[in-house]
Every structure is written in C-alpha cells, then in structure tokens.
Amino acid sequence: MSRVPSPPPPAEMSSGPVAESWCYTQIKVVKFSYMWTINNFSFCREEMGEVIKSSTFSSGANDKLKWCLRVNPKGLDEESKDYLSLYLLLVSCPKSEVRAKFKFSILNAKGEETKAMESQRAYRFVQGKDWGFKKFIRRDFLLDEANGLLPDDKLTLFCEVSVVQDSVNISGQNTMNMVKVPECRLADELGGLWENSRFTDCCLCVAGQEFQAHKAILAARSPVFSAMFEHEMEESKKNRVEINDVEPEVFKEMMCFIYTGKAPNLDKMADDLLAAADKYALERLKVMCEDALCSNLSVENAAEILILADLHSADQLKTQAVDFINYHASDVLETSGWKSMVVSHPHLVAEAYRSLASAQCPFLGPPRKRLKQS
C-alpha cells in the first residue's frame, strides 16, 4: 500500500486566492494483479454453464480479502454459449462490502496482453458476489490457432484489481511565511564533478583513453575500487588504474551511474553493462540491467540471455529466462542460440529441462510459493 502523499503547497495549487485553511483528501486504492494459466484448455468440458475456478489470491499475505477468477468455457447461458465468460469473485471478506475495479486480458504466445476488457467503474462486491463479462471473447476466435491465444493449448488470463480503501483527510492552515525547501541536487552536482573533471585525484585508463576521477567517490560506490585504493596496490601508489576489459562507451555509462545513480543509455548496452556491474560489484546497476534484459526477452535471444545471466550470477534474470524458455519451449528449441547452448553450456540445458519437467508435473513435489530491489 502506498504512503499517503503530503498535500501540495497551496501557493502551487492555483494562481488564484489562497485560503486560510485547507483539506486534502486521499482515497486510498490498493492495486494488484494475478495470472492464471489453464493447461490443455481444449479438453475443458463443453457443457453450457460449466465452471472452472482459479485458486484464491489477494494483494498480499496480510490481506484478508480473498478473490478468485471464474471461467465458463462455453458461456454462462444460452445467450453467451458462443463466448467464454469471465468473472472476478470475492471469496471471503471481513467487511460487509468492498468496491473494486478490474481489468481482464489474455496473454498471447509472446506474453503480450490482448483482448483487454475492464470495468468502467468500481463495482460493489459482497462475499460470494462476482462481476465480469458474460461475453468476454468469442470461442471461435479464441480457438483459432492463427490468433495465437492458446500457445501449446494453454489459456493464460491476466487480471488487474484495484480495491478502494478508506479515504484519509489531511488538513492544515496557511501561513504568510511559507518556506520552500529546494530539491536535493546531489546527483546532478556529483555528475558535474565527473563531467568537468574537477578536483580529480586519479586516472582511469580504458582502451587508450584516459578519464579523470575521484578516488573517494569510486571507493564509496564500488567495493572493488575501494579494495584497489585501500591496500598497497599499484593503483593506490600511482593513482592510476588500467581497465582492459570494458569498452570506453560502456565504461562511461558505468561511471555515470557511479556518480549519479542513473544510467540513461542502459537499454542500448544492458548486456555489456551487466558484465561491468558484476565485475565492479555495483549491485543496483546489475539489477537494473537484469530488468532491462528481462523486458527484451524473446524467442530468438532467450538462450543467449540465459548464458549471460549464468555467467554473471544474475539470479533474477536467470529465473526469468528459464521461465520464458519453459513457456515458449517449442519455439526456443528451434533457435540457433539454443542449439549452440546445447554444445557450449549443457548444464544450462539440463537446468531448463528440470524446470520444465517440474512445471508440467506438479505432483512430483509440493507447490512452490512464489514470493528486491534495493
């Protein structure tokens, strides 16, 4: 649940008159999402009104509101027999009622949201009550392989729920002597030191190019640089560091992050930047690179990204790559990247197969709970 924001200063709310007192009302909304995959969808019983329910879910471990999704594969009634019906059901509720908006969509073979439908307002739910769409999607369109909505005969539904909580009022009075504290510009100011090479005390040599930097900042941000300058190493004695395995453009992006906490060109060089972040123990930059690479996972590059993640101990990226390969196994196994990995990294192939087997055979063990970014 997000923290209630402070109200904007009255002088910034309007260029008009300023009242002596004010009130700011925040209506709290808890948002969460749920993904439900139905394997072997074409084998569902086709009687009209037949119901399939998901397991229950909530916004978190401490949330007492429990929900589930309900599907009628062949419609709810005679009117909707040519459609799939989809509903959000409130299973248990400690209150007399709650209000919530919802959005349903289908994830296609690429994991993209399609055929989205959402409620136009927050509906009133009581325990045992459901709301949804009797005519969510035509069955003939859903079952047509050309539309790519049932890869490997799996129907994957994605649901986003927004639950309306209580409202909170914050009130106060205006004073004539309003003090406005300026925003912190530390990142910009440190970035200026790097860009202008002011007050530098060490030189970093990268592929024949020299960059002036500040030992204190490098040591504070990177345990690797800290070790170089702290001990009686040649880098500490000469205040000069030779860097041979990072390209200059990648190095500059890494230094921008060290000084400012930002990497504006990360998406263009996420793979190389991940390697640099791993070498210099820049954990936050490493996770930022993992996130960017996750966003660009595809059938063509899944094997290469899995190898990269394994090489640099990028655990979150590795998990996402394995899950992606499992979901698109029939396509990924035909790529040149996968065939190369079979020869060069057989242990990763074995890991992917083990994960695929456990996903398809849940009876082999208890269900695993899916539970950071600093």
Rank of each mutant, 00 (worst) to 15 (best):
L317H: 00
A329T: 07
R198N: 13
E230C: 14
D323A: 07
S119R: 01
C159G: 08
S42P: 08
S336N: 13
E113D: 02
E78P: 07
K115W: 12
V71N: 13
I137N: 06
S226R: 14
S2E: 10
A329W: 03
S55K: 15
A292S: 03
K372I: 04
S54A: 12
L274T: 09
L142M: 14
Q209W: 14
I170V: 02
S2D: 05
T175R: 05
K180G: 02
S222I: 13
E249M: 01
N301A: 10
L186M: 04
F125R: 02
D130H: 08
M178E: 05
N147P: 10
N39F: 05
S85H: 11
R198W: 13
D331Y: 03
V126L: 13
G172W: 05
V18A: 09
L190Q: 12
K81P: 15
A302S: 03
Y353T: 00
E234Y: 15
W338D: 00
F158Y: 12
K339T: 13
L364N: 15
E304K: 06
H312I: 11
F104T: 15
S119N: 00
V98Y: 12
G337R: 04
T37S: 06
S6P: 07
E230W: 13
S171F: 03
F229D: 14
S55A: 00
A61C: 07
D271N: 04
H328D: 04
V161L: 14
L186E: 08
K268E: 01
A220R: 15
D278N: 06
F136C: 03
F102T: 00
P223G: 15
S42L: 03
Y83Q: 11
A61Y: 03
K286H: 06
T175P: 03
A302M: 09
S105E: 14
T37K: 02
N296G: 12
W22F: 04
S6R: 01
I27F: 03
E230N: 15
S2I: 09
Y87S: 00
S119F: 00
A100M: 07
C202V: 13
R124D: 08
D77V: 07
P223Y: 12
N62T: 11
T319F: 09
D245A: 05
V224E: 10
S226D: 15
R139K: 07
F158V: 09
C205S: 12
F32R: 06
L333I: 06
F136K: 00
M288L: 01
A227C: 12
F43P: 04
D77R: 06
T114N: 13
M48W: 05
N244K: 03
T335P: 00
Q360N: 15
T37Q: 04
C256S: 02
M255N: 11
N72I: 14
Y123S: 05
E183V: 07
K268D: 09
